[in-house]
Every structure is written in C-alpha cells, then in structure tokens.
C-alpha cells in the first residue's frame, strides 16, 4: 500500500506555545488511521494544517503525491472533513445545506441530484431533506455532516471525534457506512476519537502528547509494547492465587492476574496446571496503552483528560 499522507518534521507554534513539534508520520491508502491525544496535544493543529486551514512553521506535508505548499486547492478537493461540532447552516434545510456545499466543489444540477440520491440512501436521510438542520436530533445531524463531507467523494475522510455524544445506534450506522466506503472505495480514514474501542479497530495508531509523538504502531504492537496480558482465573481461592507471586485483582467470582506478556502467562499455566483449570487470557486494552504512554486518561466522549501523573 502506498502512503497517501506523508508528514515530515512538522512544526507549529502559537507564540510561546509549541503546538506541534517535529511531527513525522505516514498514513497508507485505504487504512483507518487513529490519531489520539488529550485536548491540547496538537491533534486539531495537525488536522488544520493538513486541511490548509492553518499555515505551518516548518516541515513538509504531502497528500496523495501533492505538496501542500504547492497546490493546497488540489488537496482540499480530495479531503472530506467531519468537524467535531456541526458547522452546517441551522436555519436552512438539509437539501439547501448540501446543495450549497456541493456547489463549492462545482457539483451542481444533475450531478448534485445523483450524488444526493446516493448519499441519502447510504446514510438513510431521504426523509429529512426538507427539514431545517437546526431541528434535527444529534444523530440525524451527524449523518448530514457525514453526507456533506462525502459530497465530492473524497479520497481521505477526516473524522474529528465523529461519534462524541452519539447514541449507540447512530454510532453503529456511522461505522458501518465508513467500513463500507473503505471496502468499496478504498477510502482512507483519518480519525481522532476519545473512544478507545474505536481506536482499537484502527490499522495504525499515533498517540500524540504535548505536540510530539509519544507512541505509534498497530493496536497489537502498542498493546504488546505498552500493556501486559491479563489472565482471568476462575474457581480458585485467593491463597492459591497469592502463591503464584504475580499482581492480581480480585473480581466478584474470579481473579485477574497481570503478566508482562503471553509467554509469561504460558509459563505460569504450564507450571501450575492444577490451578489453571478454568481461565482466559486477554490482551491489555487501548485505554491501558494510552494511560501507560501518556500518563493521562482519555475520558470517553467528554473530551476532557485527567492527568494521572
């Protein structure tokens, strides 16, 4: 797979505040790329630079083979962005909103009608076309935001915390649509989220802390590097668990042992087969990765971070 986004040594400062420092990463075509970090970590600054909304102080950004400094309009034409907060015109109908935004990409007349029909079917909003955007529910509005971002069939879809505050049904619909677009159109998805279960589905994850990359890799690589494995042991008494000599947490009907990796878990099981009669081994979660990497906890959906240092 080719790199569709190449960022090399990106710098951006606002006065004394260094928002992004020496940031370099790659995003491959068609992958789901998760960009994680607490508020103020530099995610939005990076996205704004990628989208041509903010000038950079240094570094190079290349998207789909085009240098951002040389042809920002070409790049804008291949990016679709779903903002954290809906920025459509609340007083206008869904139809008027989409029509005016499609015109920005020279999609008018029959081309617009055709694309509108495709998107209203994909996102199931045909019955909302005449309603003012301001009178839609949060979930309905999000579907229209996504339709707006997809109007020009972008190669890259930037999702800035797209599911924050959404009900589970709309979240599911949204992810189904995104999966379908990735499969059928090889669309690259650049995601920022506070939901770690969404980040766990990503092909590649970059964790940003204070404007720098704190960790990167596939979710599996990150889990293997930054968290251990967990063995949940059933049907034993605490004394036996204590004798194993590993850290554990007592659950309602089991004990959760923390081991550094799967090899250590295997070693324990082989050594104490009489204790390990009913058990399961699980990897650490992305929440644990984030916590271990940054020392901070991402609050799901709320957008706030709690510093655990």
């Amino acid at each position: 797979m080719e790199d569709i986004i190449k960022i090399d040594r990106l710098f951006k400062a606002f006065g004394e505040v260094k928002a992004v420092q020496d940031l370099s990463f790659r995003v491959k075509t068609g992958e789901l790329f998760a960009f994680l970090g607490v508020n103020g970590a530099g995610k939005s600054t990076t996205i704004n630079i990628l989208c041509g909304q903010l000038s950079k102080d240094g570094g190079k950004v290349e998207i789909d083979g085009t240098d951002l400094d040389k042809n920002v309009n070409k790049i804008k034409g291949i990016l679709g962005v779903v903002f954290q907060d809906s920025v459509l015109d609340k007083a206008l109908s869904v139809y008027d909103n989409l029509q005016s935004r499609a015109a920005l990409y020279d999609i008018t007349g029959e081309r617009f009608q055709k694309r509108l029909a495709e998107l209203s079917q994909l996102l199931d909003f045909g019955n909302l076309l005449k309603r003012p955007v301001g009178k839609l529910s949060g979930g309905q509005r999000r579907r229209i935001d996504i339709a707006r971002a997809l109007l020009h069939s972008p190669k890259i879809l930037v999702l800035d915390e797209p599911t924050t505050g959404l009900d589970p049904q709309t979240r599911k619909l949204l992810w189904n649509v995104i999966s379908r677009l990735r499969q059928e159109e090889s669309m690259t998805v650049f995601l920022t989220t506070h939901y770690m279960e969404e980040a766990a589905e990503a092909d590649y994850v970059v964790i940003l802390d204070s404007g720098k990359i704190a960790a990167e890799g596939t979710p599996l690589e990150l889990k293997n590097t930054y968290t251990g494995d967990f063995v949940t042991l059933y049907g034993v008494d605490e004394l036996a668990v204590k004798d194993l000599g590993v850290a554990y947490t007592a659950l309602r009907d089991a004990f959760r042992l923390q081991v550094s990796n799967t090899a250590q878990a295997t070693e324990l099981i082989v050594k104490h087969p009489h204790i390990f009669t009913d058990y399961e081994i699980t990897k650490g979660k992305m929440d644990d990765v984030f916590l271990n990497v940054t020392g901070k906890k991402l609050e799901g959906g709320g957008g706030n971070a709690e510093n655990l240092d």
Binding site: G52, K74, F83, V87, L104, Y105
Partner: peptide, 13 residues
Amino acid sequence: AIGTIKDLRISPV
C-alpha cells in the same frame, strides 16, 4: 463566529 466559515474554506473555493 459560529465556525461555518471553516466548512466553506475547507473546500477548494
């Protein structure tokens, strides 16, 4: 003021 301009300027207009 309400951020709609971001949505307009994100396009090649």
